Simulated scan of single mutants.
Amino acid sequence: MHDDITDIPGIRVGHDTNFEAATGCTVILCDMEATGGVDVRGSAPATRETDLLNPIHMVDEVHAILLTGGSAFGLNAAAGVMRYLEEHNKGIDTGVARVPIVPAAAIFDLAIGSAQVRPDAEAGYRASQQASSDPVEQGNIGAGTGATVGKLASPLLAMKGGLGSASTQLPDGTLVAALVIVNALGNIYDPQTQQIIAGTRDPLGSSTITPNPFSNTTIAVIATTATLTKAECTKVAQMAHDGMAQVIRPAHTMFDGDAIFALSVGTRDSQQARGALAAQRVTMIGAAAAETLARAIVKGVQHARTLHNVPAAQE
């Protein structure tokens, strides 16, 4: 066990990182068809293919999730992920072509490094090529490269955020894991001590600094070995937001685009629980997802390192 999302069989993670521009993208590839859901709580999201994950819509398989920097520009990296998957014969068979399903979400990292350099289709393709089941590198990597936290007063008073990942095994053997890009307007709190571990360096700010709130969003992927429906995945994603709210304060603001995807890689032909038993299982998985996401968020800032004069919590 790595204590990260690659503990889930069939999940591989790859990154493309640009330290000079302080941006990048991270791809979560599914070696088998996965069932997906999503829940968006922030009021400034940059997303792609989230409507498709609505339980009332037809397609119920996901082949990859893209988390990217570059704000809405960075969503172009999904084209490269699709190209990689098509080359590997992954996607929905439409009869004339296989169409890979790649939902995506982006953070705003244009205020650090270069605002003119963003992940593109080639970056998404390179990240897909690098995907592996090895332990996930955390901190300043992939979509977490330009992530920052604690910007309520001003981005100039922020600290470094980053990519974090964690996993949990339930008593019945079910695995639940999270991968998150921590790029919050709010501060990050240790859930045990309730002390700030990364955030605004000067809470009082300065009258000479003009706040720029458009530099936020925390995005995440939850994955589980349980066999879940689209509706159940959506509920797990919804419950996982509790973990975000536990350690990010404030969370889900008007200037955050907080979004969580959920993936089920369980065997589709396995016997599924129904009624109260199914509801109980989804509740347990959702609760574990929240706790695991909270740990992943803390790990993301703990592994971060100073970049472009934005200091890290652990330095």
Results as ranks from 00 to 15, higher is better:
R268D: 08
A237C: 06
G91F: 07
A245G: 06
L170N: 12
I297M: 09
D93I: 02
G91P: 06
L179Q: 01
K299L: 14
Y84Q: 02
V310Y: 05
D60H: 11
K230N: 04
A44W: 09
E33Y: 13
E20M: 07
D39P: 00
A21T: 10
A34E: 10
R295E: 15
V136L: 08
G257F: 06
P155F: 06
G150W: 00
Q116L: 09
H88E: 12
N89M: 05
A147C: 05
Q138F: 03
L75F: 05
A105F: 11
K151G: 01
G10E: 12
E49D: 15
D39I: 03
L29V: 13
E49C: 06
I92E: 03
A158M: 10
G113Y: 11
I196L: 01
D202E: 14
Q194F: 05
G199R: 00
Q314W: 08
G69K: 10
A304E: 07
A231R: 14
G24C: 08
S264D: 06
V62F: 10
M32W: 00
D242C: 01
A131R: 01
A22T: 09
L228N: 01
Q116R: 13
G124D: 05
D190K: 04
T292P: 01
R98I: 11
Q272C: 09
T283H: 13
G37P: 07
H303T: 07
T234S: 12
D4C: 11
G205S: 11
T208A: 11
L263Q: 13
T283G: 14
L185G: 02
D256G: 04
V149K: 00
P100R: 12
A106I: 09
R295I: 03
K90F: 02
A262S: 14
A158E: 02
